[in-house]
């Protein structure tokens, strides 16, 4: 069986996704693997306002997509020591689908993802991303809580 060379870590800025990055770093050190950090946003940065508008809606809704994606990836990057080869990627679309596509295209040997800690039923109803990844990914999936 093949060795672990490419580890894909989808990040969303949550606490569990930070934990997933840390876990992936451990594995990457042991296996001398490369880490791909991936952030998937629903909207393209092309939809961002040219000027920052103040809104009563939360920043997660109206905040600029480009800035958010970059900030989340940069934060994840700080958790990976420079001795490990790491790449940052931004994709636009439905997270689970984009993550699975990316894994396939880049021949990821493993996906390390933060779990939200929801039950199967809640997870299913809420459309848990990690649940879909586990079910559909061809490679091993490590779920970190």
């Amino acid at each position: 069986m093949q060795e672990t060379r490419h580890i894909l870590v989808p990040v969303d800025g949550s606490e569990n996704s930070d934990k997933a990055v840390v876990q992936a770093v451990d594995l990457a050190k042991a296996c001398a693997a490369v880490i791909d950090l991936l952030y998937v946003s629903y909207f393209d940065s092309g939809t961002d306002d040219a000027v920052e508008n103040i809104s009563w809606l939360p920043d997660s809704v109206t905040g600029s997509t480009g800035k958010t994606s970059k900030a989340i990836l940069e934060h994840a990057k700080t958790l990976v020591p420079e001795t490990i080869e790491r790449h940052l990627h931004i994709e636009t679309g439905i997270p689970a689908k984009k993550i699975l596509d990316f894994a396939k295209r880049n021949e990821a040997d493993m996906i390390v993802i933060g779990g939200r800690g929801l039950g199967i039923v809640e997870g299913f109803l809420l459309g848990s991303v990690s649940q879909q990844i586990i079910e559909q990914a061809a490679c091993p999936v490590l779920v970190v809580k």
Binding site: Q23, M110, L118, A137, A138, V143, K145
Partner: peptide, 15 residues
């Protein structure tokens, strides 16, 4: 997956 406190790796037979 739901109840373990530690990380869990799920492996599927190669499709």
């Amino acid at each position: 997956l739901e109840h373990a406190k530690c990380p869990v790796v799920m492996i599927k037979a190669e499709q």
